[in-house]
Write a protein that binds this DNA or RNA. Structure first.
Length: 493
RNA sequence: CGGGGUGUAGCGCAGUUGGUAGCGUGCUACGUUCGGGACGUAGAGGUCGGGCGUUCGAGUCGCCUCACCCCGACCA
């Protein structure tokens, strides 16, 4: 038995395949019949909901409100901002007709050629254009600012190659779109949001991130500056996990969004946008998982504690249930989410393995032996350590343990990232090191040409120019020209 | 869009020189079990991705086609 679940890494030397398999085995998602799209299953969606709730609360604490804008964007809207449309044009799904009809030749249902739209509609790849088209009507005076709005939505980008959670044709995300009266205020908000994302990643996902600025080439289409959080996956590749863009007045000008300032003069508003997506699910999976399956940080686990009874007969089960239910109530009273799995159709060993694959942080097992001894078996998912502890006072112990696990996961990921971060000075060294994965801190002359050359020759890109860390100037490893500071290179998803 | 690979039971796979469609797991029923994915017995489940061809006969050979996966190019 148990041939397929354990050691699924060993079944393939490929990290992507392992990842895909894990997503399916842990019951998070599966490929859909629609090209490049996935079905998020209830357990996977429950994790996304935890992320949503947490982020939403954090946003609201900064004064942001939620709203909703249309899925379809008129083509003319998308084309208003030149750089923006150029960046997204290649991956847009386009609605051209609004009706089907029965084929007169009997070939089933076909698109009705008479129902062609006068203007094509684009399925949103992002909502800047439709939102700024709307903001024009919402903003008139400096008193209307700042306008701080977020939308939870789905977007579609027709990617050539897809990967579950990391890059699907359709994905779920939030996109915040703010309008400000001054450039300074807008920049401040842009940074505030990237800080918020970093806090979320580290405190809730237990995933260390590096905050920084994107190089010109990697910048969002239509932005004057893009901030990013970059995380390292267990195969040493980087994953861009969240971005916050300072859009300057680009969109305000494209959509003619002006306000009258305190001096009674018209002025274009200053904009920023920021977003994270279901890609964070991919990040979560790839940061913590092991060969036994998913490992969820307690702060995001839909089930934090699972209790598995071990019994021989109905009377035994009832005895255990009687013992366990007060504990379930006590834990729930502490705000801990508990599942007491006394389902009779699965054996304990099966349940153990199953909850491990699903990444439940803490498991309690209780049987006849424990009832006699007043004990319970406790296992933590992060280390897979088992211990038999006193039943009395277990709730408090669990509460502490959950925090321990959360901290431990973060530390483990941070140690790994530190171990896999290298400083190099020559291009030769760089080429050698990049093959082994990880982040590389190196000097760069700041030009897109050099960046392009490095990318072409090594597949590594500049992940970001870090906001903090070592700021000693030096010489570009490729051209020898002056470099303001080291930047982070890596291969990425 | 290039390069590679895979399509056979819900899932994972085998199928030899062309000759009645197999294994593991899962599923159903009953019984025994239940401290790390239990066991026994009996069952159900397939137009072998699709099309055309070669042949007395094709899962197997040939041509075409479709889908999916992996590696690139593109991107969050």
């Amino acid at each position: 038995m148990a041939k397929e679940l354990k050691n699924f890494t060993k079944r393939s030397d490929n990290y992507s395949q392992w990842y895909n398999e894990l997503v399916v085995k842990a019951d998070l998602a599966e490929q859909s019949a629609v090209r490049g799209c996935m079905v998020i299953k209830p357990y996977g969606y429950a994790i996304w909901e935890k992320m949503q709730q947490t982020l939403d609360k954090m946003f609201k604490e900064t004064g942001v409100q939620n709203a909703y804008f249309p899925l379809l964007i008129p083509k003319s809207f998308l084309c208003r901002e030149a750089e923006h449309v150029e960046g997204f044009a290649k991956e847009c799904a386009v609605v051209t007709h609004y009706r089907l009809k029965n084929d007169p030749d009997g070939n089933g249902v076909v698109v009705d050629p008479d129902a062609r739209l006068e203007e094509e509609l684009i399925v949103r790849p992002t909502s800047e254009t439709i939102i700024w088209g709307t903001y024009k009507n919402w903003i008139h005076s400096w008193r209307d600012l700042p306008l701080l709005v977020n939308q939870w939505a789905n977007v579609m980008r027709w990617e050539m190659r897809t990967r579950m959670f990391l890059r699907t044709a359709e994905f779920l995300w939030q996109e915040g779109h703010c309008a400000h009266a001054t450039a300074e205020e807008s920049e401040k908000r842009t940074i505030q949001m990237i800080n918020l994302y970093a806090e979320f990643a580290e405190k809730y996902m237990a995933m260390p991130v590096i905050q920084g600025v994107k190089s010109e080439t990697e910048r969002f289409a239509g932005a004057i500056n893009t901030y990013t959080i970059e995380a390292m996956m267990q195969d040493g590749k980087a994953l861009q996990s969240g971005t916050s863009h300072n859009l300057g007045q680009n969109f305000a000008k494209a959509f003619d969004v002006t306000f009258v300032n305190k001096e009674n003069k018209p002025e274009y508003v200053w904009a920023n946008s920021w977003g994270v997506s279901t890609r964070l699910m991919g990040a979560l999976i790839m940061t913590h998982s092991d060969d036994n399956g998913l490992v969820l940080p307690p702060h995001l686990a839909p089930i934090q504690v699972v209790i598995v009874p071990i019994y021989k007969d109905e009377a035994g089960r009832e005895e255990i249930t009687k013992k366990v239910l007060p504990l379930v109530d006590e834990l729930r009273g502490m705000g801990i989410s508990v599942k007491y799995d006394d389902a009779d159709n699965k054996r304990p060993g099966f349940k153990f393995a199953d909850y491990e694959v699903k990444g439940v942080p803490v498991r309690l097992a209780i049987g006849q032996r424990d009832l006699e001894n007043g004990t319970v078996e406790l296992m933590r998912r992060d280390t897979l350590e088992k211990e038999t502890v006193q039943f009395e006072g277990i709730a408090g112990h669990i509460r502490t343990l959950l925090e321990d696990i959360q901290d431990n996961l973060f530390k483990k990921a941070l140690d790994y990232r530190n171990k896999m971060t290298y400083t190099v000075d020559t291009y030769e060294e760089f080429k050698e090191q990049i093959e082994k994965g990880g982040f590389i801190l190196a000097h760069w002359d700041g030009t897109p040409e050099t960046e392009e050359k490095i990318k072409a020759e090594t597949k590594a890109t500049i992940r970001c120019i870090p906001l903090d860390g070592d700021t000693t100037p030096g010489k570009c490893m490729v051209t020898g020209k002056p470099s303001a500071r080291r930047v982070i290179f890596a291969r990425s998803y």
